[in-house]
Design a protein around this nucleic acid. Structure first.
Lengths: 248, 248
DNA sequence: CGAGGGATTGAAGAATGTCAATTCGTGTGG
DNA sequence: CCACACGAATTGACATTCTTCAATCCCTCG
């Protein structure tokens, strides 16, 4: 049954993809989308823990997420892992590899995920003849830069509870934009992943979840989170809805 | 005398600009550089503390730094400043504004600085007919994303002394690539700026400078820094020369 | 049913922040 | 030209948040 679902999704064209409005096709004319669709490669879905690409791998594609979720991370020389982002449907990963020509990071599926591979040389070429596509590419990259700035503020200036609150609010909004519930969702990453990303120890994350629950900000049950007091949580996060980016 | 120097530099064309090999013209043919040069706007140099752009300002140009140095920073709703980067000649600032159409950050001169303003709409258009330029733009943005990842590792996983060491090494390498001494240079930012950027208190930065001096890693005299033991400093920084990015 | 990773909770310790006082350097105005 | 004022930098003492270490618990998957 799973297999059938997946093999169906397999053939989803950009034109009929449910999250195309969040992806590269934004603002492209119908015929332009067809050209884009023509270079997109869809392959077997990634299962949980499978790698989309690894550090050092030759850069050939950027990847659009059709369904599921990924984490990307780097590993320093001393073997320390640093998660640099979590990715949801409609988002593009692999853009950090353009400059050097090889991937400087890893991307791993947090759950079964469908991915579109887009050969970057072809994408570049297409972008030259399609102003809207070029613009969208610049925008996607610009947004990533912008988000990293926001993150820097979070990591440098905010206390542990503010970081976690901002993280939850951010996820909530991203789910919401994808047509899912923004008040209730499932975390696909572990506590350890969250701590790694936010620069906190696992134990701190765990304690904070408990504390948030006690303060009736959220309701947590392992990976299931439901936001009880969005107002209070947002205000803890500090940046309010500022933290949501990229929506025109 | 200063005035004359500046008014001369004023007219420097991309073709004869000393740092063009670090800037957008990289890998462009001579005739292509001329086209680029034609849209570049050079204006009066910024003096120390003058703003290049402010948060909320309409996005029209990206800026290339010809000489001097800038800091870019955001200010959160609660009024906290977060420095997101320091910029040296050859670097492009303002790319974070592409997505939203207005600048999400400030850029301020740390010293007298000559800046090239490049209208982004024209740049985009030019990039469509000049594959090398489009590619360079993607690369510059990709590099910025990559650097932010590196920074994330620094802020999340490294101790205060490792952060400062990495910061000094990074600056050193960037000066070196610009033909300046990589072992001796002047910090144009304050200790407070450094602390802000690295997520440390001013006092911590100050103490570390003193400690580095005692350990004979560097020789500091206010803003003047000379690196005494590059090897040891690099190894403290952890990422060794990994921290230098964007060089092919 | 057992094993193992993930999560939670408690107690103690360390790194860094905060507060406060002082010095230093520079630009300004008398 | 000197004195003053102000911001930057330094240094010390103390407070605090978060990490680390350790013990359990829980849930899932063989």
């Amino acid at each position: 049954m799973l297999k059938q679902d997946l093999s169906k999704k397999y053939e989803v064209k950009c034109q009929s993809c449910s999250i195309s409005r969040l992806c590269l096709p934004v603002m492209l004319a119908e015929t332009d989308i067809e050209h884009l669709d023509a270079i997109v490669q869809r392959s077997r879905p990634l299962r949980k823990s499978e790698l989309l690409f690894s550090d050092g791998e030759k850069f050939e594609n950027v990847y659009a997420i059709r369904s599921g979720s990924l984490k990307s991370y780097t590993i320093s020389e001393d073997g320390i892992e640093q998660i640099t982002g979590f990715h949801l449907p409609g988002e593009i990963v692999g853009l950090d590899a353009i400059n050097s020509g090889s991937h400087p990071s890893f991307a791993k599926a947090l759950e079964t995920s469908a991915i579109c591979a887009i050969p970057f040389d072809k994408l570049e070429e297409l972008a030259r003849s399609m102003p809207g596509l070029q613009q969208q590419l610049f925008k996607v990259m610009s947004q990533e830069i912008r988000e990293d700035q926001e993150l820097m503020m979070l990591l440098n200036k905010k206390a542990a509870d503010e970081r976690l609150a901002a993280f939850i609010i951010n996820l909530s909004q991203r789910f919401g934009r994808r047509g899912l519930s923004s008040s209730q969702f499932r975390l696909t990453m572990t506590r350890s992943d969250i701590g790694n990303y936010l620069g906190l120890a696992v134990e701190t994350v765990s304690r904070l979840f408990t504390k948030f629950q006690q303060n009736e900000l959220i309701d947590v049950n392992d990976k299931e989170v439901s936001i009880s007091d969005a107002e209070a949580l947002s205000s803890l996060a500090g940046t309010r809805c500022h933290f949501v980016q990229g929506e025109k």
